[in-house]
Design a protein around this nucleic acid. Sequence first.
DNA 1: TCCCTCCTTGTTTTT
DNA 2: CAAGGAGGGA
Length: 763
Amino acid sequence: MRLMTDSLKPIDGLSTRPPPSLLDGLNETQAEAVRATEGPVLVLAGAGTGKTRVLTTRLAHILASGRARPWQVLAVTFTNKAAREMRERVARLLDCSVEGWWVGTFHAACARMLRGHAERVGLKPSFGILDTDDQLRLLKQLIEARNIDAKKLPPRLFSSVMQRWKDRGLTPERVTEAEGADAVDGLALPLYRDYQERLSALNACDFGDLLLHALTLFRDHPDVAERYRNQFRYLLVDEYQDTNVAQYLWLRALAQGHHNLCCVGDDDQSIYSWRGAEVGNILRFERDFPGAKVIRLECNYRSTSHILAAASGLIAHNRGRLGKTLWTTAAGGEKVCVRATWDGEDEARVVCGEIESRRASGHALGEIAVLVRAGFQTREFEERLIILGIPYRVIGGARFYERQEIRDAIGYFRIVVRGDDDLAFERIVNTPKRGLGAATLRAVHQLARGDGLPLSIAAARLVESDELKPQARGSLGRLLADIGRWREMLTRLPHPEVARALLDESGYTAMWQADRSPEAEGRLDNLKELVVALAEFESLPAFLEHVSLVMDNDEAAGDDKVGLMTLHAAKGLEFDTVFLPGWEEGIFPNQRALDEGGEASLEEERRLAYVGLTRARRRAIVTYAASRMVFGTWQNALPSRFVKELPAIDIDHTAPTGLFRATPSRAPADGAWPMAEPVHLAAADTSGAPRWPIRRPTPPLIEGRAERVAARPEPSHPFTTGQRVFHQKFGYGAVRRVDGDRLEIDFEKAGNKTVIHSFVETA
DNA sequence: TCCCTCCTTGTTTTT
DNA sequence: CAAGGAGGGA
């Protein structure tokens, strides 16, 4: 996203040659969503209903019909990936370049506006954009400056509170007294002020600020707001259910001109409330924008009818939906397979075994994905896939530009390009180790703060004086001289060459070469890759502007590998075959979400499950384990309540023999259990005899064919009825009943609770 | 200043 | 269990 001029390639030719095919192939509702260009429109697009197609065609239609020129349309998305896709598709539809158009992420659009009016919000046009790491380091300094115990109240905590305020469009002045007093013992608000002040002084802003400043700009400078309001005749928004309050206010401000706001989204796929997204935005659309037209895209082109029905049946358990009825013309297909497994290892074995046999029958691995609730769950699958020699790719995880070595390298680039980039200076000053520790840094800081200087200038002054120990002085002097030299090199040599020289001469490459850890080699490769990436930009500053906004790293998804990713990362993707492991209470729905967010969070977890199921085109396989190793201890698990919420006629529920008893102990309430009920579900009505079918740590299983010994109930813990015990959270109590691993305990303070034995100790 | 050991703490993540 | 941070010792 560099400086984009509003001049553009000829598109006028299009009006004389209207592409007759633009609406071809769209169904009636989709076409309606494209044609309804005037006034506010909400397109409720269920999973797999052709949302992106509608969005891009609509944009193309607006331009091709001459309703607006390219710079008069603003189209915003959340991710760079989505933005890129939209640009590519529109370019293809109209057969022209989209260079300079306002098609991009919310943040890129705001940054572009702010670059033009930076002074109005107290920044210089060259302002830098902080990444998460910079933010946390900065916050830590501010926390310590206020003598707050950073151990008890870590930077992350403050960061998230402040971030949530920014998500709601609240500058420090706008946070109410009451709320300020409430947040982190009243410490968060003053710290928020410190932080914003510090950012201004650094001529920098964080991601949240891009929107916040844009809002301030509109609010305090009506002329600017007016300008953009008039400019943008048509507004298009992707994934509207993910917008936060700040984004909503920003859109509303822009829509006040021509009122042509079209938002596309799906309330059932809102899974980001924890980072400030407001489902309320989409639920309230008709009230917010009077006269709004609501168009529902309900014809699903992706999944088979069983998958669709299973997903719909599940999501129907949520309340407060706008409601959609997805349907498909593709009848039949396989039922959703639900499979019980013994434990995490067994689950990985089952899933990867399936993958293996699909590969053997010619299935493309790139069309298979394993979608987990949390990142750590990928480990077991990775291990198993490695054993089987099946290529895979973990999507998400540490992104390229977030890796330590990349940020360090970029830190060097930053300090060379912008001598006053204090955060970059701090980052690299003692990396690699050059004997510049806390003491030296303190001296530099002190001088810098006292005289209002950037750190590197202060450091240069210190080197001239004799206030430093000779060693530190020499070392710091050498670093500064190096920086100066690299800066000079930049004026006469190609920047990739300078980058290479810089990494060598600074000792940074050598640092990783000397490193014996297994990942060092990969890091060196990454550094080489970085230099290659660099060459694609015309200059180092141009590159830096790019990385600050475009932190994505789409691994070439070209090669044929199984995808491992979180459910969040899977949103927007689709695969022939989708495995959904870990459907257990506590894992999915996630315990923490349940504890912290109650019913609302449960519904979000359910939406996550919905997102997962609807990623599948032909086959969805849900698995759960009866026992799982969690944080180093074995825990028994109950199947996720979501399993029971899947309509029985659309699923095929199986379990290995021995895991379930032969006959159900009670009739399934809603017909949801077409087979023997898992014993661990029947636990409630028992009278004490331990009959837990789960073994303690899984015995190593010989490759291939080992008979599973039916688990026998074993007294795996010493607790007996009447015994006095202690629990970390609930305190002291007496055991009232023993039921396998579960103990019903009458706690003195907390009352009657059923807990797993491993959580209590004898008192 | 650096390195090692002990202790804590475990979702989801884009820009 | 495993990783990352903090604090103490050399």
